[in-house]
């Protein structure tokens, strides 16, 4: 067992725990992505389905742990990469399989739809400041790198192993120096695009009586997204400055701690979001069950929404039935291809 195994195993166990709880983070009238009568989740049938799903999750977690141990013993990174994939894909498959046992108990999706006559939806938390701050951070970092160009070592680490050992190096060039900022700019643009889609292209509660809950849920998601953008931006700026901070050597302990602290700073926002799902007034989401493939992929060409609430996990997912979405996805892919080509 290498010294990294305990950390890797802890991560795998944490993912297992998350997958264990995810089915409970839902609207009250949904169970495994199916619209059910209120309080169906308290019935023995519902609990049986949950137990079946959880058995799969822990079986997959054991397999993932075995992969991590084998990766350490055989010194192969393929098995290490396979562990989270086995867990994520396996849990999604387990969710889809057990969902079929819920379908016989499905309630008819409410035919009555409701909408507020409030013209303008809420904006991003913090308004324009929430966008300007990360942009200013990126710009300030770029300017600082430009000003200190001669101080950047001729050769510096560009990628690190999980234990902090550099495994890829780069020569001083504008691509190597500004590449992380460019990639970061694109990533945060995508995140803001998702936030804008939530504000302007997602429903504000289609079922009467759920508007207030939906408004709180949307707000909590947007707050998490904005906080994540700030955290990602701070991490990217920090990574970009590492050649200057470490003089091209191996990064100090702080290099690993800073991204961890930034990630941990998102915890209160996630907790707030998860706590919302305990509210019994959340009802259903007003999307037809038949348009959810495997309970996870939403394809509804008759729904003009670009994003809708997830039924597996907390947050929003895309409406793959919306033609505009495919153009946006193509544009995003082209943007990433352009940045990768530049680097």
């Amino acid at each position: 067992m290498t010294h990294l195994d305990p950390i890797d195993i802890a991560i795998v166990a944490l993912v297992g725990l998350l997958l264990h709880w995810i089915p409970l983070w839902r609207r009250h009238d949904l169970w495994f992505g199916v619209t059910v009568p209120p309080d169906f989740s308290d019935t023995p049938q519902a609990q049986l389905v949950l137990r079946r799903y959880r058995r799969w999750v822990w079986l997959l977690t054991v397999v993932a742990v075995a992969c991590v141990l084998a990766a350490g013993a055989l010194h192969t990174s393929v098995l290490m990469a396979a562990a989270p994939i086995i867990q994520a894909v396996g849990a999604a498959a387990a969710f889809a399989v057990v969902r079929r046992s819920v379908l016989p108990f499905a309630a008819q999706s409410p035919a009555v739809r409701s909408a507020p006559l409030e013209p303008t939806p809420e904006g991003l938390p913090g308004g324009i400041v929430s966008i300007l701050v990360p942009l200013a951070m990126l710009a300030a970092t770029a300017l600082y790198l430009h000003g200190e160009w001669s101080e950047i070592p001729a050769r510096f680490p560009a990628h690190w192993d999980i234990d902090g050992t550099p495994d890829r190096w780069a020569d001083r060039s504008w691509r190597a120096a500004y590449g992380p900022l460019l990639t970061g700019g694109l990533v945060i643009s995508c995140m803001f695009l998702v936030a804008e889609a939530i504000v302007h292209r997602s429903p504000r509660g289609r079922i009467a009586g759920t508007e207030a809950w939906t408004a709180r849920f949307r707000r909590a998601n947007l707050m998490l997204l904005v906080a994540a953008v700030w955290a990602v931006t701070a991490t990217i700026c920090f990574i970009s400055l590492l050649p200057l901070l470490t003089g091209g050597g191996q990064p100090a302990l702080i290099a690993g701690v800073v991204p961890l602290v930034l990630t941990a700073s998102l915890a209160p926002f996630i907790v707030q979001l998860v706590r919302l799902t305990r509210d019994r007034t959340s009802g259903s989401d007003g999307t037809p069950d038949t348009c959810w493939k495997f309970g996870q992929i939403y394809i509804n060409p008759n729904d003009p929404a670009l994003v809708v609430e997830k039924r597996f996990g907390v947050g929003y997912t895309l409406n793959f039935g919306n033609r505009a979405l495919w153009w946006i996805l193509m544009g995003t892919l082209l943007g990433f291809a352009f940045v990768i080509a530049l680097r």
Partner: peptide
């Protein structure tokens, strides 16, 4: 709503796109 005074002259209504998304019907 208009006759009952629930919505008054000068009030703004949701755009076509906004109301269609909220109700889940075609624009």
């Amino acid at each position: 709503q208009l006759v009952a005074g629930g919505i008054r002259p000068g009030d703004a209504l949701p755009s076509v796109r906004r109301l269609a998304i909220d109700l889940g019907v075609h624009f």
